[in-house]
């Protein structure tokens, strides 16, 4: 019985963790490849959430459009950031971070102006609003759908990074961008493509999380903070590291909230401190430097 009590929160935590992984993967790759610490990343996630919440009206086509629009808007946002930060290349991380922070402030303001100060949730098709029964537990269909889609997106991300030339170029750029130029590929194009994909993933993560978490004025900051925690714990630039860290954050958060509500706010920061203290730069996928 005791184990059972943790089952639902763990499944929730894994789903949440996968969403965080989708959100954070782009952030970590954009930093690893082009050195852009994108502080507007949370704003892209929130924008995806708002667009999805506003677009989905309870029908399947509107739901599909909501997800697609969120991803497209995220990619466009990533493109704008790529263009804006390209001019600052070579001036260090701080200039780029400041610029993206400014974009985040303006974007956040714009979002509350357009969508108002309330927390929004999308209207979903009736099938998704119910629950299913599995192994004696009732589980909301929308969460299950989010879990399945998140697994698919993570799997697709893996395939792209490891089985396509574009993915190899991205990993090579994270490792040594000068040598990517040396084989005739302009690394700045890789940077721009990465920022656009990161934006699309951020928008997608925002859209996928709204049925569960809703989207409001605090979404951007929370999403950015969690993404940054994941990127740092997972090792800057490491996608497998980010995935592991995101799953850990998702499960710690969810279990914490259900099991130790009074400790929950400190659990995550505590766990992060422990990870940073014990991590010996050897998370999966990180080259022994």
């Amino acid at each position: 019985m005791r184990v059972d009590a943790y089952l639902i929160p763990v499944v929730d935590g894994v789903a949440y963790g996968l969403l965080l992984a989708i959100a954070a993967a782009g952030l970590t790759v954009a930093f690893g490849a082009g050195g852009v610490l994108n502080l507007a990343h949370g704003t892209l996630i929130a924008a995806g959430g708002y667009i999805a919440a506003a677009t989905s009206s309870g029908t399947w086509p509107s739901l599909a459009a909501a997800v697609a629009l969120a991803a497209i808007a995220g990619a466009a946002g990533g493109g704008v950031l790529a263009a804006a930060t390209a001019g600052l290349r070579g001036r260090g991380h701080l200039d780029q971070a400041l610029l993206t922070f400014g974009v985040a402030l303006i974007g956040g303001d714009l979002l509350t102006t357009v969508y108002g100060p309330d927390t929004l949730r999308p209207r979903l098709p009736a099938t998704l609003e119910g629950t299913v029964e599995a192994a004696g537990h009732r589980y909301p269909v929308d969460r299950l759908a989010v879990l399945v889609i998140a697994v698919l997106v993570v799997a697709a991300g893996y395939v792209v990074l490891h089985r396509t030339r574009a993915g190899r170029l991205i990993r090579a750029t994270v490792d040594d961008r000068a040598m990517v130029a040396g084989i005739g590929v302009n690394p700045r194009l890789v940077d721009a493509a990465v920022l656009m994909c990161a934006g699309a993933l951020a928008g997608l993560a925002g859209a996928l999380s709204t049925p569960i978490l809703g989207v409001g004025p605090g979404t951007a900051d929370t999403a950015l903070l969690l993404s940054l925690i994941i990127v740092v714990c997972g090792g800057l630039g490491s996608v497998p590291g980010a995935l592991a860290a995101a799953l850990a954050v998702g499960v710690v958060q969810t279990l914490g909230v259900t099991s130790f509500p009074q400790l929950a706010p400190y659990l995550l920061v505590g766990a992060m401190t422990v990870v940073l203290l014990v991590r010996r730069r050897s998370l999966p996928g990180q080259a022994a430097a």
Binding site: R165, R168, A172, V174, D175, A178, G182, G184, A287
Partner: peptide, 30 residues
């Protein structure tokens, strides 16, 4: 550098400068 490479100038640098996270096969297929 990428323009030089496209024109046909290839550098095999001292100190090797490989991509640690790519396999040998990937170095050659990328």
């Amino acid at each position: 550098p990428h323009q030089a490479a496209r024109t046909g100038v290839a550098l095999a640098p001292q100190g090797r400068r490989l991509w640690p996270s790519l396999t040998v096969a990937e170095h050659l297929t990328v």
